[in-house]
């Protein structure tokens, strides 16, 4: 078709579907591969034999099903949430430096976690410490605060939001430091280690509820990805092209903050995923958010599963915070991509 040839560089639904399916296949393969890596050698064939009898449980099955796989699924959920949310934050704020934490999720979660420790509450919710619950509430509460301040500043909405985010982050960080200096040291250590970004085995209910929440959020975000393209050209342009800018911005920030808060309460603050994965996907496949959003999410999952596997393995039997690995591996990897694809690559589209 001649007309289609002329606009051949546009994303077609078939291309998007093919790429998404390929990325998901890659994710599944990586997840299986990584589940076999750890301090204990596990054989997939032995594990497939089943749970064994109650008197002689199959150790391979036990480790794989109750230790490795939940943790890998956790890493995938967190990675998908952070990378997807990062892509959305960058689009809405029209800022390539934006990440999911920029509007105060990080300091809000930190403050929540710190308050949980300082106040000394000890109840648990689905086997979760109060730290996670407080962090979740703190993260969402802070984003709400920043959004409200940003709305009041009015006309230069995006700039107002960013500034409010920076200031609130700084203010809450100061409170965290204040609490750190007056709290007992072992509590502080636990919180700081938790905040550094950590994967631990999770209760199955929490795992599936979080997975559902993140998946629903990402699917919802996909349906505003076309308006997000327009909004990344600025509010005026988007408005004059018939986009309900405020509405899309609100949905985008609310949903991506929610899934970020879920990720943070699962695993603390894992840096870099939400910043570089969207950039890496954008560098290779282009900026169209209809593609950027699903592929960033899947590649974020891949990235964090690999990073967590390395974090489990590299100083075994001790474990590194996964945030250390994401920055140490992600940084150089991203720079290589940046140098290699300093322009948009057309032959891939």
């Amino acid at each position: 078709m001649r007309e289609d040839e002329r606009v051949h560089s546009l994303l077609s639904p078939r291309t998007l579907l093919t790429r998404t399916v390929a990325a998901v296949a890659l994710l599944v393969a990586i997840m299986i591969l990584c589940s076999l890596v750890g301090t204990q050698n596990v054989s997939l064939r032995a594990a497939l034999a089943g749970p064994g009898s109650p008197t002689a449980p199959n150790p391979d099955y036990e480790i794989l099903l109750h230790v490795r796989i939940p943790r890998i699924i956790l890493a995938a959920i967190v990675g998908a949430a952070l990378a997807g949310a990062g892509a959305v934050f960058q689009a809405v704020l029209r800022n390539p430096l934006a990440d999911p934490y920029i509007l105060g999720v990080s300091s809000g979660a930190g403050l929540g976690a710190m308050l949980a420790v300082v106040s000394g509450v000890h109840w648990t919710l689905w086997g979760r410490s109060p730290i996670a619950v407080f962090a979740f509430i703190g993260a969402l509460g802070t984003v709400w605060l920043v959004w409200t301040i940003g709305r009041i500043t009015g006309r230069f909405h995006v700039t107002g939001l960013l500034l409010a985010g920076v200031v609130v982050n700084a203010f809450f960080s100061a409170i965290i430091m204040f609490l750190t200096s007056i709290a007992r040291s072992q509590d502080v250590y636990a919180t700081v280690f938790w905040l550094m970004g950590n994967m631990a085995e999770e209760d199955p209910f929490v795992l599936w509820a979080s997975a559902g929440c993140v998946a629903a959020g990402l699917v919802g975000l996909f349906f505003i990805s076309a308006p997000l393209n327009v909004i990344s050209f600025g509010q005026t342009d988007a408005q004059s092209m018939g986009i309900h800018v405020e509405r899309v911005q609100f949905i985008a920030l609310a949903v991506s903050s929610l899934i970020t808060a879920v990720a943070v309460s699962l695993s603390g603050l894992i840096g870099f995923v939400g910043l570089i994965v969207p950039h890496a996907v954008r560098l290779v496949l282009g900026p169209d958010h209809r593609q950027l959003l699903p592929l960033s999410s899947v590649m974020g999952a891949v990235f964090l599963v690999v990073a967590d596997t390395i974090a489990r393995r590299v100083v075994a039997p001790a474990q590194l915070p996964v945030g250390v690995i994401t920055a140490m591996i992600g940084g150089p990897f991203f720079l290589i991509l940046l140098m290699r694809y300093n322009r948009r690559v057309y032959w891939l589209s």
């Binding site: 606009v7 560089s9 546009l10 994303l11 960058q90 689009a91 029209r94 800022n95 390539p96 393209n229 990344s232 050209f233 954008r282 282009g286 900026p287 169209d288 948009r344």
Partner: peptide, 8 residues
């Protein structure tokens, strides 16, 4: 801010 193409 982002490298959209002409047709996009």
């Amino acid at each position: 801010a982002f490298g959209f193409s002409v047709s996009e």
